[in-house]
Amino acid sequence: MSDKVGSDKAGRVKAGRTKNRLGAAALFAVVGGMVGLSFASVPLYRAFCQATGYGGTPRTENVVAPTAVADRRVIVQFDANVNPDLPWRFKPAQRQVDIRLGEETLIHYTAVNLSDRPLTGTATFNIAPDAAAQYFSKIQCFCFTEQTLAPRQEVSMPVLFYVDPAIADDVDARDITKITLSYTFYRTDGDDKNSAKSAGVAARNARGGNG
């Protein structure tokens, strides 16, 4: 091959360049694909959590009424939190309920707007322990819908749920006797989705641009 090096150098160089460029193009495509995957992981992760209850995600999509009621009982406790930027009082009407598996249960949270102007909030929710989440089926709830409260208005927020009797057959979850449903309300006023962020932007502006 070394004899040929001098003779057809130009052609060889050209062929080599084409090959190099093809290689580089393929590798750039890999890079683009990985960037795409990192963004695609957002909806994928969400779908994964909803399908498996991973990370304490209760079932809220396509939930049907319970088919059977078992004799085993479970205690469901209710927890409520409010982000300090939202001047609401938010708490469950009952600390806990003692129910049978598969029993359709209606409970209430109450929220009061303590301020003198209308405020809008959204609640995130979670189940603890994680392993129970996929058996916690919410038929009706205020899951992640915006709630607007007039000044001093008090509302009752119902949650209709049941605990799937299949939990008794899951080796990882069958020992669970207490399940906690937790809500946290955040402020979602105006076009600023996140009050913590707007507070941060305000702080930055107050300090003259760069903190």
């Binding site: 890079v31 963004f39 982000n83 959204t122 992640f144 955040y186 996140n194 962020k197």
Partner: peptide, 27 residues
């Protein structure tokens, strides 16, 4: 590295353009 680039871009838009990739309040 492209995954880091994607994650950093999400952080950048969370910080500056009001997205909620990592912000619980925004889902």
């Amino acid at each position: 590295l492209p995954v880091l680039a994607g994650a950093l871009t999400m952080l950048l838009t969370d910080r500056n353009f009001g997205t909620s990739f990592y912000v619980v309040a925004g889902g």
